[in-house]
Design a protein around this nucleic acid. Structure first.
Length: 214
DNA sequence: ATTTTCAAT
């Protein structure tokens, strides 16, 4: 497959802003966008392999659609032996307007256990159903963290990067919306708080050992 | 401001 000649459709400018706006009450965002970059590392060389964006369709969450897309893009992702995996690996960065729901977190975790040669970094604009302490979505995020996924809340630089890479911007420069920074800081705090409870879900003996109390 | 969320109608 010749990826260099592949034409990539960009996200319309106003769609990007509407769906990625990290406001507190994101009313009416009944769609989720996922912008991705896939890098392929062969031996010491790492090169950009593919990029683009997807959105949820027909009741199927965008993360699941991405896994399908990835399967088609990298047919050799599974079934490599240890030697091949050392030589060939992929790293994926995606920017999603919502953080994953519990079902997608479970599916992703299962997927990642089968692909040790794949590294995943997730940036999210807003946290999906994470208001309650005991929410399943919060536990899903911790599950992903335990699986080695790096999850971060998008900051100005990340929106700027997405703007340059995935948006049909027609020479327009990225202009931060009101509250971008404050919202990002608030959501980062929230995600940190969620992650801190990781200790509650591991074996307490491990936690004590970690703290030098055992 | 206590309001929203990968719709359903």
């Amino acid at each position: 497959m010749d990826l260099t000649n592949k034409i990539k459709k960009k996200i319309l400018l106003d769609k990007f802003i509407y769906h990625y706006k990290n406001m507190r009450w994101a009313k009416g965002r009944h769609e989720t966008y996922l912008c991705f970059v896939v890098k392929r590392r062969v031996g010491p060389d790492s090169l950009s392999f593919d990029f683009g964006h997807l959105r949820n369709r027909n009741g199927c969450h965008v993360e699941i659609l991405f896994l399908r897309y990835l399967g088609a893009l990298c047919p050799g992702l599974w079934g490599l032996d240890a030697d091949e995996r050392r030589r060939l690996s992929y790293s994926i960065t995606w920017f999603c307007s919502w953080s994953p729901c519990i079902n997608c977190s479970i599916k992703l975790t299962q997927f990642l256990t089968k692909t040790p040669n794949l590294r995943l970094r997730i940036f999210v604009s807003r946290l999906y159903f994470c208001d309650l302490e005991e929410s399943r979505e919060r536990e899903g995020l911790r599950m992903l963290k335990r699986a080695g996924v790096h999850i971060t809340v998008m900051k100005y630089k990340d929106y700027f990067y997405c703007w340059q890479t995935f948006v049909a911007r027609n020479q327009t420069n990225f202009k931060a919306w009101e509250g971008l920074h404050q919202n990002s800081v608030r959501l980062t705090r929230k995600l940190t708080h969620i992650s801190l409870l990781l200790l509650h879900s591991v074996d307490l003996r491990d936690a004590f050992r970690l703290l030098g109390l055992l």
